[in-house]
Design a protein around this nucleic acid. Structure first.
Length: 582
DNA sequence: GCCGTTTTCGGCCCGACTGTTTTCAGTCG
């Protein structure tokens, strides 16, 4: 049983206890579930090497839950889970993923209408049965239907950050199969789209059968749809499909181009090929029957008289025209971000200490991180007030001294910062005096999401007008597959950011990934600076930075557009200048 | 059920919004 599966069961326990009306246990199980899911090392390995006791090193896991996890690993279940699952025979995976539907309502619907899964729920809602239940009404019924619709539209797609590591692992393992020369991820994952619906991998090999045999028998495979000489299609246990195609090594470039997409980009490209007297398909670029280019993508684009746009840009939104004009921007490269400007520690709802975050950041080669714990209006996270921020500042100063002994050449800096809440009226929940003492201030909307576009836009603009605010964190507030972005007029936000010198954030956390590519382009065009941050709540989350780079590249960002590509010294000077200007 | 610079037992779960209500339960961040 892997960490995700364990986490799911712990989450189910939280829901069950919520239904039972038990206090405190739900939060405890939820926290443990979250920690297990985020934990790098697999619980199975930890248990194998250190037993139950070692499991307790996972934050939020104590003796009780450690015993449950041990039972899950050895017996696939534990008595309390069995009992509650029997008492509430519900598909919580389905019902729990509908926005606005919590444990109590799920229980109510089960008791009154026998709703056990999504199918039951939709039937009941469509039949108008939900509105008749006391405490629920027409609006609740409509909200449930809307929730189902939203879930359907996003279902089956997994955030890039969660699927990319697996895709890369499969790619690497395929590369090791005897006979295989190359294995290449294609499709939306190669384009680094925010979510992926499937994994597409191409291989060139001298032994097609061996590659197909390996692919369909991987441990991640749940079912095999099809397996042939040069192609296989499977369902993975994580709930999406994966396709393997064996292609001749001479036409790898053409196949990679074809299967990378996107569709609109390829249609446009093929039209250009036709106009120039060619035919373009997955086997090559043909003039009459002669294949003139197929080994590399560059070769194909070159024959069509254009530069090769990087996969992230291929959406047919101007990249082809730019490629023809040889005016593609020099995109920000991966690994060029030098600091993370949004990180959360155990001073609020992060998992680890400032020191642990800093140590990990340093290990990744970063030169600075801003500690941006939540502030007081977010009570649920234990948000810091002015006094808390002052206490934290002392701790940071102490650590900075420790991290930078006088004799050491390489510098690492922890910046005093905060993720300040933008209140409903656009004011902030921390006094200006306290904000002025921080080295960099991020502000974000965390409450009152359902405002009209004009109200929300005004609210954020007002926050930007506070001279202490340097960055707007996750400017659209979307949560992939879970929450729509709040309504804002991005043109106005960008204009205000330009006027106030405020940085807009590209949030690299897999569930967030805002801004979207179009917004990035809009900001860059207006000359607004951006930052790429992870919103890390645990040290490993710092590794998500590259997802933000991917998003920046999709939005045509150059290195100079992103403030935290600057080396430490230059960044601090820039920050000083920024503060002075206001 | 977990946890510890308010510590080994007694806290933890706060505030706003929504939809249903006429005084409040459920949900979310």
């Amino acid at each position: 049983m892997n960490n995700v599966e364990i986490s799911k069961i712990l989450n189910a326990m939280a829901v069950f206890y919520e239904m039972e009306g038990v206090s405190f246990k739900p939060r405890a199980y939820e926290k443990a579930a979250e920690a297990v899911a985020a934990h790098r090392e697999s619980a199975a390995d930890i248990f194998k090497h250190g037993g139950e006791k070692a499991l307790m090193d996972i934050p939020g896991v104590g003796p009780g839950i450690a015993a449950h996890i041990a039972a899950l690993l050895t017996k696939k279940t534990f008595p309390e889970y069995q009992r509650l699952k029997k008492k509430y025979p519900l598909n919580l995976d389905e019902l729990g993923s509908i926005e606005g539907l919590g444990p109590k309502t799920i229980l109510l619907l089960y008791k009154k209408l026998g709703v056990k899964d999504l199918k039951d729920l939709e039937r009941a809602a469509r039949a108008g049965k939900i509105r008749k239940i006391p405490h629920l009404g027409i609006k609740s019924e409509q909200n449930i239907l809307r929730g189902i619709d939203f879930m359907r539209r996003s279902a089956g797609r997994i955030p890039l950050g969660y699927i990319l590591p697996l895709a890369e692992e499969i790619e690497a393992r395929l590369g090791q199969v005897p006979g295989v020369r190359r294995a290449v991820i294609c499709g939306s994952i190669r384009r680094r789209k925010e979510t992926a619906g499937d994994i597409d991998i191409l291989v060139t090999t001298s032994k097609p059968k061996a590659a197909v045999d390996y692919f369909v028998s991987m441990p991640e495979v749940e079912a095999v749809y099809a397996r042939g000489e040069g192609k296989a299609s499977v369902r993975l246990k994580i709930g999406i499909d994966a396709d393997l195609r064996v292609v001749p090594k001479e036409s790898l470039g053409a196949a990679v181009q074809y299967f990378t997409g996107d569709k609109q980009h390829n249609i446009h490209l093929r039209t250009i090929a036709i106009k120039k007297g060619y035919k373009l398909n997955e086997f090559g670029l043909f003039r009459d029957a002669k294949n003139v280019a197929c080994e590399t993508e560059e070769e194909i684009y070159g024959h069509l008289g254009m530069d090769c746009p990087s996969p992230e840009m291929r959406t047919d939104t101007g990249e082809i025209e730019a490629a023809i004009a040889h005016k593609l921007p020099k995109l920000i490269s991966y690994d060029s971000v030098r600091g993370d400007l949004q990180t959360t520690t155990n001073w609020t709802d992060g998992a680890k200490s400032i020191r642990e975050m800093a140590v990990y950041a340093k290990k990744l080669g970063l030169e600075y991180i801003a500690i941006t714990d939540h502030t007081k209006a977010l009570a649920m996270t234990g948000g810091l007030d002015e006094r808390g921020l002052a206490r934290q500042a002392k701790e940071i100063e102490k650590l900075n001294t420790e991290f930078n002994p006088p004799n050491r050449r390489t510098k690492f800096k922890i910046l005093k910062s905060a993720e300040v809440n933008i209140l409903k009226d656009g004011s902030l929940d921390i006094s200006d005096e306290a904000l002025a003492k921080l080295e960099i201030v991020g502000a974000a909307v965390h409450t009152n999401f359902n405002m009209s576009e004009s109200e929300m836009t005004e609210r954020i603009i007002r926050a930007m007008q506070n001279p202490n605010v340097d960055i707007i964190f996750h400017p659209t507030g979307r949560l992939l597959n879970r929450r729509e972005p709040y309504k804002v007029n991005m043109e106005k936000i960008v204009a205000a950011a330009k006027a106030t010198g405020t940085v807009l954030e590209i949030d690299a956390f897999p569930d967030r990934m805002d801004l979207c590519a179009e917004h990035v382009r809009l900001a860059i065009k207006a000359g607004v600076k951006l930052s790429i941050d992870t919103d890390a709540h645990a040290p490993e989350h710092l590794e998500y930075l590259n997802l933000g780079v991917a998003l920046a590249r999709a939005g045509w960002a150059k290195k100079s557009d992103i403030v935290n590509t600057m080396p430490l010294k230059e960044f601090l000077e820039w920050l000083k200048k920024l503060k002075k200007k206001r």
